[in-house]
Nucleic acid binder design. Sequence first.
DNA 1: TCAAAAGTGTTATCCTTACACCCATGT
DNA 2: ACATGGGTGTAAGGATAACACTTTTGA
Lengths: 326, 326
Amino acid sequence: MNASVVIGLSAVVVACRDGEALVLTVRPQDAQTHRASALAGLPFGPFDPVADRTFELALRAFVAAQTRFELGYVEQLYTFGDKGRDAPLADIGAGAARVISVGYLALTPRPTDTSAPDTAWAPWSRYFPWEDWRRGRPRGIDQVIAPALAAWADRSDERAARARALFALDGQRWNPERVLDRYELLYEAGLAPEADRDRRRAQGLAAEEPAALSAALGEPMISDHRRILATGLGRLRGKLRYRPVAFELTPAEFTLSELQRVVESVAGVALHKQNFRRGVERTGLVEGLGRQDSDTGGRPAELFRFRRDGPNTGPATGLTLPLLRE
Amino acid sequence: MNASVVIGLSAVVVACRDGEALVLTVRPQDAQTHRASALAGLPFGPFDPVADRTFELALRAFVAAQTRFELGYVEQLYTFGDKGRDAPLADIGAGAARVISVGYLALTPRPTDTSAPDTAWAPWSRYFPWEDWRRGRPRGIDQVIAPALAAWADRSDERAARARALFALDGQRWNPERVLDRYELLYEAGLAPEADRDRRRAQGLAAEEPAALSAALGEPMISDHRRILATGLGRLRGKLRYRPVAFELTPAEFTLSELQRVVESVAGVALHKQNFRRGVERTGLVEGLGRQDSDTGGRPAELFRFRRDGPNTGPATGLTLPLLRE
DNA sequence: TCAAAAGTGTTATCCTTACACCCATGT
DNA sequence: ACATGGGTGTAAGGATAACACTTTTGA
C-alpha cells in the first residue's frame, strides 16, 4: 500500500469585462444524477504524478480541456491540505484518499465565451458581495453581516475585535486585501454554508440542501473552492500595487479609463480619476500611441499600451490606488 | 496500487544573531554509509495523509522532533513539483513515488543552539554570498558570476538582459527581493552544482562528488532545498516592507539599532540610520519603554517593544528601507 | 446647446532623503 | 579627551490628495 494522497489542481481564472471582474466557473456533473451540480466551482482536475511534468503544464492542459480556454499569466496561490475541508472524494474521482489541492491564479485579457457546457464567467461579487465598495459601503455589511458577527462574538472581545477590523465596523478602515481573512471569519462564524456542510460531513451525516442563498453572504461553491477564490482575489488585489498585473487583464490597447475600471473592479474600490492617471503615467509602465478611441460617449480618449520592457528601476512597479470617498 | 505521490514538508527557519541572518540546517544521514551527509539541507519530513490533520501541525511536530526547536511564526511558501528537481527518493523514505514538496517559512526571535545532532544555524550568505550587499557590492558578482553568465549568454540578448537586470550589471539597480530569480538563473546557467546533479540523475548516471565549492557561488544543498531557501529569503525580504515581520525576529525588547541590524541582515543592504529610526517611529508599530540598554559601546540606547495591537490603519504596515550608498 | 467623458493646472500636505550637529557613556 | 554609538533639527524634493477648470466629442 502506497501513500493515499491525491493532488488536485484548481484555477482562479480572472478577466474583466464591462467594468466587472469575472471568474471562470464550472458546474461539475453530479456523480449520482449525472446532471450539472446546483453549486458552481472552479475549474479543477487531478494531477497525474506519472504523466504530468509540472503543476503548471497539467493545469493549462485540463483547463483547456474542461473550458476550451487557453490560459495566459499563471501563478501558484497556495496549497490547501486541512482535513475536513478537502474536496469531497467523488469530485476528484479518487478512492479513499486524502485530497491536497494546489490553487492557481490565472489572468486573461480576453474573456471569450467558452463553448464548453456548464462553464461560465461569473462576476465575483456573486460569491463575495461584501467585497465591492465601488458604490460605497455595501448594505449587507451593516444589515446582515455585522449583526450576525456580533451574535457570534457574544462576549468574546477577541472575536469582536477581529470582526471590527476585518469588516471596517466602528469607523475602522476597509482593507481590500484581506479577502481571505474575511471569508475565513465568516466560515468560522458559521455564516458560510460551506461550514455547515463540512461539519455534517465530518459527522457522517447526509448533506443538506443548500440553505436559502442570502444576497448579503454570497453564493457558496463546491468543496473549498470559495476559499481558493478568496485567496486569489486577495493575492491579486495585493499584487496590483507592486507588480504590473493590471495589464494582464487589459487588451493590448486601452484607454486610461478602461485601465481604471479594470483596477477598480479588482480592488473593489472607487479611485480618484485624475490622481490615478497621474500615478499611471509616473510609473512609466505605459506609453501613449497618439491614436484615439472614439466610442467613449464623450471626448475621445487616447489609447495606451503596456511597455513590457518597462523600467526595472526601483523594487516595486505597480499602480497607486488613490482612493475616492473616505 | 494507489496514487504514487508523497508529500514532503520543508522549513526555512530564520533567526538573527549578532547582526547575521541565520537559517536552521540539518545534515541528514546517508542511506548507505549511515554518516551525516556532506551537504546540508533544510529540516524536512514526510506528511502523513492519514495521521496529520494539517501541514502546519505536521511541520511543527517534525521540526521539533528533528531539531528540538519549537517554531513560532509560520507561513506557507510554495509547493514544488517539477519532475527532475524533486527530492531524491531515498531522502524521504519513499518507494518509487513522485515527491511533491511544500515549503514553509518560519521565524523565531531565539536562535537557541539545538542539542540535536547534525543540526546547526548557518548564516545564509553561506548559500547565497551574492545576496549580501551590506558592505557594498559583493566581489564575487563581478569577478566570478558576471563573466560566467556572459559566457553562458553568448550571443543571446535575452539571456544577457536577464543577467544584467537580476545581478545589477551595467549600472542597473539591485533588487533585493529577486532572490529566487537569481538562483534560478544560476541554476539554468549551470552555475549551481545542483543543476549538474539533477541532470546526471535524469540520465541515470551516478552522482558526482560535489565540485570544489566556489566562494562566489555558495554552497549547494541537498535536493531542491537551496531553491526553497531562495524562495524563503525572497518572500521575507518582500514582506519586511509591508508586514511587521521584522518583530518576529527580534527579542521582546530591543533597541532601534538592533532592529536595524536585523532588517539589514535580512534585506542584505545597509540602511540610513536616522531615516530608518524615523520610519520605524512613524509606523506606530513600536513603543518606547523609557528604560535603557547600556552595553552598546557608546551612549545607552532606549529599549522599545513591538505593539501587537498596532494601528490597523492603512493597507500596508511594514518598515521603510531607506537605502544607504547608491 | 448640453451632457458626458477626457484631460490640465494648482495647491497644501505628507513622506523621503540628505546633511549637519549635539548627547551620553566607557576607556 | 576622545572614540563610539544614540539621538535631534532642518530643509529640499517628490508623491499624494483634493480642488477647480478647460477641451472635445455625440445627441
